[in-house]
Simulated assay, not measured.
Amino acid sequence: MQRRDFSGVMKTKNYRYVGEGQHVADKRTRVGFLLLENFSLPAFTQALDTLVTANLLQAQTFSITHFSLDGNEVISDLGLVISPDAELNHAGLNDLAMLVVCGGYRTPLHADHSFLQLLQDAARLGMPLGGLWNGAWFLGRAGLLDGYRCAIHPEHRAALAEVAKRAEVTSESYVIDRDRLTASSASGAPTLILEWIKQLHNRALVDGIEDILAFEASRYRRINPKSLLKISEPTRQVVQLMEANLEELLELEQLASYVGRSRRQIERLFREQLGTTPQRYYLELRITEARRLLQHTKLSVVDVGLACGFVTGSHFSRCYSAYYGYRPSKEQRLV
């Protein structure tokens, strides 16, 4: 059977499933996380998860090193003890593509001279520096935020403004200003890292990361809302109807009628705005959701096929194989 490729916006959501972009990186990008006492575990793990997810899509893209100031264990804000890989020293700065200082609500705002000197040396190497939660305070205390915009948790905004008088201090979710990357809370941490990855890699990888990380938050999120910003309202409404009716499929005439357009008008809008036909878009939407259900639920292949509008198992298997190159029964289960 000849393989089919995904079309339009659906292609970028499925590139990782059909083998495009799945290569081993020639050289890993090394990221260091400095864990301070009482650091925010949620902020750290969400930032880390973004990098690990990138590695799932493109093997060995990033390597991660966890540091503490003295090489000893660090207690997080949730009371979990983390054993670092190494003590942060000048040797540890070698080959780092970015160093992220991980603070937390109860992280003491204190830094000795040797710590500040390490941060300053990292800056002199031209290394991007990040700060999570109140991690930005330590960058400011080292004089590394002068002339920069930055983000810090509201509890420590005044403290940072005091030591970094030439910085524009905000409590936005995250701020990237040139080679300074700061997030004020756990919710901003993954977006901060994702935006940094965008500077290094192609859009398809970023879309893949977003898609995977958003799965649990919104199970039926199938396409990035940003990708629909430039489509017309009738097209948007048809897409939403398709998304809401995967099991019981709607005919094109029904879809067109619901949005007050003719079949021909809907076909033209899809061709011009999404680069495909409504029928093919609907099929690819169902195939994409089928793979998600196979990977992230314990539903049987038969039940997944029915949930995605395939009346017979043989039809489901043929369509699935045409796009992914293997039968749905061979799909990797992640649960």
Rank of each mutant, 00 (worst) to 15 (best):
Q117N: 08
L118E: 04
L119T: 09
Q120P: 05
D121H: 15
A122G: 13
A122I: 05
A123K: 09
P128A: 14
L129T: 06
L129M: 08
G131C: 08
G131D: 12
G131M: 12
G131Y: 07
G131H: 12
G131S: 11
N134T: 05
L139A: 06
G140F: 11
R141L: 04
R141Y: 06
R141E: 14
A142D: 04
G143Q: 04
G143V: 01
Y148N: 02
R149I: 10
R149K: 15
E155H: 10
H156Q: 11
H156S: 10
H156M: 11
H156N: 15
R157K: 13
A158R: 12
A158I: 07
A158V: 03
L160C: 09
V163L: 09
A164R: 11
K165I: 07
K165G: 06
R166T: 14
A167H: 12
E168L: 11
E168Q: 14
E168G: 00
E172Y: 09
Y174D: 05
V175E: 14
V175W: 13
I176W: 02
D177H: 15
D179Q: 15
D179C: 08
D179F: 10
R180Y: 06
T182H: 09
A183N: 07
S184Y: 04
S185P: 00
A186C: 01
A186S: 06
A186L: 01
S187A: 10
S187C: 01
S187P: 00
S187V: 08
A189Q: 03
P190I: 04
P190Y: 05
T191G: 13
I193Q: 05
I193D: 02
L194I: 02
E195G: 06
E195S: 10
W196D: 07
I197W: 09
L200G: 05
H201S: 09
N202H: 14
R203S: 14
A204Q: 15
L205T: 09
L205R: 09
V206A: 10
I209R: 01
E210D: 03
D211E: 08
D211H: 06
I212H: 07
A214L: 03
F215V: 03
F215N: 06
E216N: 01
E216L: 09
S218L: 00
S218W: 00
S218N: 05
S218C: 02
R219K: 05
R221T: 00
R221K: 03
R221S: 05
I223H: 01
I223G: 00
N224Y: 02
N224I: 01
P225T: 07
P225H: 01
L228Y: 00
L229H: 07
L229F: 05
K230N: 15
I231L: 02
S232E: 12
S232R: 10
E233H: 05
E233S: 07
P234W: 14
P234Y: 12
T235K: 00
